[in-house]
């Protein structure tokens, strides 16, 4: 499928993931070929067990496919070793998870600083404070995740995801753990930030309304694109 955008940031060909079980080989994903243009927003939709999370983890370089290839920003993820993929994640990728995945021992500010600290960025603190202000948490800098509500935690996660100015943002059911009102606010914020940063967005959801806000929807069923 060709997009109106200038350059493909993600290209996959015949991507497949299978695992061996006692009952034989289980195919989780099969024959996934897609191109995602830079700045595009895509929703991956499907029922539970359709392979959404597996696909996102392959695209983000968190896991390796059994078959097929993935290109991220013109480089083959499949030919890289784990350390190479880690470097790619650090430079290009941001994440937002359903369960927020904040480090419990760290404050909101420290959580947001982390990706920049890992890069050795000396202005990590300033950038993190700026983003936390942007997501409306300037009063909560020193609070730990336990002291924050679910919505606030996800806002910290959004700030962490955008602080490193990623080329691609992967969001896995970002509102799955939130009530609908809070969820809607978070999604608004996500799309605002996405636009401000011109980030490519890959969003996993089974919420049709949310999926419709993306420019394109990829539907998965039993591990295949439909």
């Amino acid at each position: 499928m060709q997009t109106p955008f200038s350059r493909n940031i993600i290209v996959t060909e015949n991507l497949g993931k299978s695992v061996k079980t006692s009952g034989g080989t289980l195919h989780i994903l099969s024959d996934i070929s897609l191109q995602v243009a830079s700045g595009e927003s895509i929703a991956i939709a499907g029922e539970s067990g359709s392979g959404k999370s597996t696909l996102i983890s392959l695209l983000a370089g968190l896991d390796t496919p059994t078959i097929g290839s993935i290109n991220l920003n013109g480089k083959s993820l499949t030919s890289m070793d784990e350390d190479g993929r880690a470097a790619m994640r650090n430079q290009l990728v941001g994440f937002v998870f359903q369960s927020f995945q904040l480090l419990q021992g760290l404050t909101a500010l420290e959580n947001v600083m982390l990706p920049l600290e890992l890069r050795g960025d000396k202005k990590a603190k300033d950038a993190a404070i700026g983003l936390l202000q942007r997501v409306g948490l300037s009063e909560r800098l020193t609070h730990t995740p336990r002291q924050l509500s679910g919505g606030e935690q996800q806002r910290v996660a959004l700030a962490r995801a955008f602080v490193s100015k990623p080329a691609v943002l992967f969001a896995d059911e970002p509102t799955g753990n939130l009530d609908s009102k809070t969820g809607a606010k978070i999604i608004d914020l996500l799309f605002e930030l996405n636009q401000e940063n011109n980030t490519t967005l890959i969003l996993v959801t089974h919420d049709q309304t949310l999926a419709n806000r993306c420019q394109r929807i990829i539907k998965l069923a039993a591990g295949r694109m439909v």
Binding site: A60, L62, E82, D83, A86, A87, M88, R89, N90, Q91, V93, F95, Q101, L103, Q104, G105, L114, P115, L118, R119
Partner: peptide
């Protein structure tokens, strides 16, 4: 384990 997974996700190499 979870914190390490996040660090790895954020781009930390195994050796890091």
């Amino acid at each position: 384990l979870d914190a390490t997974a996040i660090l790895r996700c954020l781009g930390c190499k195994q050796s890091d």
